[in-house]
Design a protein around this nucleic acid. Structure first.
Lengths: 121, 121
DNA sequence: GTTTCATATGAATACTTATTCACATGTTAA
DNA sequence: TTAACATGTGAATAAGTATTCATATGAAAC
């Protein structure tokens, strides 16, 4: 999505170099930024949010989730893979049926902070 | 991005209707889900994450941010609008210069939980 | 083994988005 | 008022993504 050809930069003259240098030294590592953006990206879709909300209430199989959200099994399965990749959900099989649950309670904390923010008007 | 023509649903027979009905009654309102997904969407881009991290360390003008991240002023300005729209940042003008700060500390809490999650391996 | 069924997945497609480019806006200084 | 400059913004474009469709996988039942 990014086009990395030249380096454009800003040609302003009002630059606070002391602040820039200090802040630059305090920036998180690129790897952590990447992981964090991937985590938030997985939370940026309404379907996935619904899935996570549902799983925060109850363990559910793929079929249950599809019926709850009135969406195709395939669509749900694709989205569950995204959530597995960022380790927000885990699953266990019982015969043919795969039951999903939240992987840990970070999701609930993220929801709480997020809803608290959007609720402030 | 979604194609809403028919309603496909899942044709599985293993459906836990009791759970589905109870969870459905506990789902957040569509409006809240939308706001929450917009909030997380704004946190899902590395450029915006860097901007927010920087502002969590210091108030900065647009020019500073562009230089810090080695990106064009225009790109930064576009992204700042996204962050303004979800009220993650606010600003004040001093002459021609616009200084941005975090709007509240929900961002820091979200970062903390997010980094905590990704750090767990 | 064959069928059935729950789930996963690759390719295609419609839609979204991050950046660039060109230019508008608004403020300061001359 | 004109020039200079910091920032904002619309249109265009390249890249990313959510769903569908068709099909694969794998486990249970027959």
């Amino acid at each position: 999505m990014k086009k990395q050809n030249e380096l454009p930069q800003c040609d302003c003259t009002i630059i606070h170099n002391d602040i820039i240098n200090r802040v630059r030294s305090e920036m998180p590592r690129a790897e952590h930024l990447y992981d964090l953006s991937e985590l938030f990206k997985s939370l940026s879709d309404q379907t996935r949010l619904k899935i996570l909300f549902a799983l925060s209430k109850n363990e559910m199989c793929v079929c249950d989730i599809a019926n709850l959200l009135e969406m195709s099994q395939s669509a749900i399965s694709h989205q569950l893979r995204v959530l597995r990749n960022v380790r927000l959900v885990k699953y266990h099989k019982v015969g043919k049926v795969v039951y999903y649950t939240l992987d840990d309670n970070h999701v609930n904390e993220l929801f709480k902070q997020g809803l608290d923010h959007v609720a402030h008007q």
